[in-house]
Design a binder for these strands. Structure first.
Length: 251
DNA sequence: CGGCCCTAATTT
DNA sequence: AAATTAGGGCCG
């Protein structure tokens, strides 16, 4: 198989993802988050995003992490760009400059080292939300590190991350008025070892040590976000793993 | 120490 | 627009 064919297939997938609702581009066997309303859905090499042009944040970003994907040679791009698939209504890097907020990856750059294109695309602003440095470089990053260590040990991890907006009027940054989330969620499913399990994590978008994670059930994150996570799992499995969480298995 | 999360300024 | 340079903090 040659590269031109690969690129063509990739473009076609992205186009399909743009035209069709999220369930059309199922993520592995777990499936992409389902919701009543969705924004611009784009399947990139390393992640699929549902982008919200009103908040200028992703609604969610979904990807898979495996041993192969947790390592590689692609060097960190460090060059943030608007997502060409989203267009002019995508958030801009300039909106973040001197705002006090980091351009925080939802799907981490380091989960895309397995492919140069995936690495570049992880720096698209459709994968970015405003995060206070204490969170982005603190507890958020620590959970990212743990995920890579789990995946490096074997199995496939299905991960979804996104912002949480409170009912209070949102703060905005930049001339593009990028909304600042009050917090973030991450949900993870794996069946490594033949034992399906899942967990949800909630973070406040704050500085310092108060930015610690809270582990919860996936059901709790679904109630908060109104998304249906991992909808392609067998119903019985989905119901069971989303209703409980064993915190000891997620340290 | 290397790896990872970044920032900002400058050059081409 | 892209690449380069220079810097900071945390963690295993």
């Amino acid at each position: 198989m040659n590269n031109r064919w690969k690129e063509g297939a990739c473009c076609l997938m992205a186009l399909l993802a743009f035209l069709l609702p999220p369930t059309a581009a199922a993520q592995g066997k777990a499936g992409l988050p389902a919701s009543e309303r969705h924004g611009v859905v784009v399947a990139h090499t390393g992640y699929t995003v549902d982008y919200n042009v009103q908040t200028k944040n992703p609604n969610w970003v979904a990807w898979e992490l495996t041993a192969r994907r947790s390592k590689g040679e692609a060097r960190r791009s460090s060059s943030f760009k608007p997502d060409p698939a989203v267009g002019a209504r995508c958030g801009r890097t300039g909106d973040y400059t001197r705002s006090g907020y980091d351009r925080g990856h939802l799907c981490p750059a380091a989960d895309n080292k397995w492919d140069a294109r995936a690495m570049k695309e992880s720096f698209y602003m459709s994968n970015i939300s405003p995060q206070l440095p204490g969170l982005n470089r603190g507890s958020w990053k620590k959970l990212e590190d743990r995920c890579r260590r789990w995946a490096a040990a074997g199995g496939t991890y299905y991960i979804v991350a996104g912002p949480v907006f409170s009912d209070a009027p949102a703060k905005h940054i930049g001339t593009g008025r990028v909304a600042v989330p009050g917090g973030f969620f991450k949900v993870i499913y794996t069946d490594v070892g033949g034992k399906p399990r899942a967990a949800g994590f909630l973070f406040d978008n704050v500085e310092g040590k108060t930015a610690g994670e809270r582990i919860v059930t996936v059901d709790a994150v679904e109630r908060l976000t109104r998304y249906d996570f991992f909808p392609d799992l067998p119903d019985a499995t989905e119901k069971k793993v989303e209703a409980t969480v064993n915190a000891a298995l997620w340290r």
